[in-house]
């Protein structure tokens, strides 16, 4: 029900950020999220950042996922 896209924060001015998805840039509001800085990845829904993605833990769980299925010899 809700299209939301992982996007990178390119710059911030006040409560508004410029986000980047594959070179596509647009404004997004930061009114619904605290402690965001340039370079962070956020999930954006309808022009508002709603979640900050944690790069390290995302990488780790992706790695775990790949291992879990590779190990089984599938």
């Amino acid at each position: 029900m809700c299209l939301a896209i992982p996007s990178k924060i390119v710059s911030i001015e006040g409560n508004t950020a410029i986000i980047d998805v594959d070179g596509v840039r647009r404004q997004a509001s930061l009114m619904l999220l605290d402690d965001i800085k340039t370079g962070d990845y956020v999930i954006v829904h309808a022009g508002y950042a709603i979640h900050k993605l944690d790069e390290a833990s995302a990488l780790e769980s992706l790695e775990l996922l790949r291992e879990a299925f590779a190990q089984a010899g599938d």
Binding site: L3, I5, V21, D22, G23, V24, R26
Partner: peptide
Amino acid sequence: KKAVAGICELLG
């Protein structure tokens, strides 16, 4: 192209 795919994703 990447940016084209990006806009498509943003707009559904």
